[in-house]
Amino acid sequence: MHGLTNKAIESFVRDTYGVDVWLEVARRARLDEPSFEAMLSYEDFVTRRVLDAATDCLDKPLDAFLEDLGTYLVSHPTTEALRRLLRFGGETFAEFLDSLDDLPGRARLAVPDLDLPSLELIDEGDEGAWHLHCRYPQAGYGHVLVGILRALADDYGALVIMDVVEHVEGRETLSIVLHDPAFAEGRRFELAARAS
């Protein structure tokens, strides 16, 4: 598993529940070091252990944990860089959805060995309704994606209802319904990054 994935889980637990909770998770997951390196690779079982330890520690179902992780990735100041990269996908939430097919390719441009699930957006015929197929190397990505998309909808100021509606081996399917593309103000996005 790519270190970025493990680092994302670590940052989420640290920033949301505090360093003590993270250290307890790291201890229960029997990590050699209580910190991941984003640019190194880890065995897949390490990620599974961390997820088991975290859901145990926090007494939270895995689906809910993964969805909160997705929301964190888009909305927390620590991960502002990721929010910006996602917002490059389009001017509006609908345009962003159209860019999802390209997402794994975009990610690979930045980090060549990052293996994201392949995504396929299917138009439902009705205006503003889609199904999104998520084919994953690891189960659970669909829930992370729901969290990411919910937070991004807020970011765009769009009112969207979505959920994981189907789960077969190797694939999760999300239903996405856009009720109002300009429901709220949303957050600004300027193409040129502010010097940080």
Binding site: L85, F88, R106, L109, A110, V111, L191, A192
Partner: peptide, 10 residues
């Protein structure tokens, strides 16, 4: 622009 930012972050 996306690539410039993504590479800088990496």
């Amino acid at each position: 622009l996306y690539l410039v930012e993504a590479k800088s972050a990496a």
